[in-house]
Design a protein around this nucleic acid. Sequence first.
DNA 1: ACATTGACCTGAGAGC
DNA 2: TGCTCTCAGGTCAATG
Length: 262
Amino acid sequence: MPELPDVEVYRHYVNSTSLHQTIEKVEIFSADILENISRREFRKHVEMRKFESTDRHGKYLFVRLSEDGCVVFHFGMTGLLEYFKDSHSKPKYSRVLFTFDNSYHLAFVMPRKLGKLALIEDPSLFVKDRGLGADPLDRNFTLEEFKHALTGTKSTVKSALMNQKCIAGIGNIYSDEILFQARLNPRTKAGQLSEQSIKELYHAMKKVLKKSIENQADPNQMPRNYLIAHRKKGGACPACGEDLIVEKISGRTSYHCPECQR
DNA sequence: ACATTGACCTGAGAGC
DNA sequence: TGCTCTCAGGTCAATG
């Protein structure tokens, strides 16, 4: 699930469960998800510290540690967080388990090991080093900046939205939703969008992401006139009833309405 | 140089 | 039931 809205929901989850408690133990069941550090070093830096605050850029969640350092969570396609008490009910596919001094645990659960955990010093440096684009919900992310990010790109608008170096945080599901709300065909060339289309896309992007976060990134809670609930085989457009078109764009299964998104 | 494809990892669900 | 096949909301290296 983890696109920007999901990660933002996880961030709130960490805020409301896991801050300001001493981390007594870190167990790493799958070392290959540690990106830049050994199990041993990771434990050494994290154990007996506290999670102090959280931040997010695109699909990356940063959890700052007391003293220094910052744990970076990236959720891949299947990652999630679970806070729970009973140590015997450790969720299936827990890859990392943090145990707090109140005897609660935070599990980093991830069936497919496509996500990562890293330890870094400075989130803004991390973002810069990775060449990540702006976070679309950043207050400073203006229409001008969006325009700038799209200019010169020869790819489809679908692909540009999903390009983390262009804009950080949008994946396959939400790119479809944003394009549906903006009534744009996913194959439109990003560099050829009119001023007006860019503006509409910009506002649709913010609207969709905010609405999703409001609804805990739960597709079932999204308004009926959104694409997301209809985004499945045999689905029909919630606006006009036309059968949705399913096709691969940039290697990802994409849904759009042939009537509403010309 | 840029955009697109395949590999990565592993389980769920469909089809036989 | 059980096996096989395809697909999945991510990224990155390799390819065109």
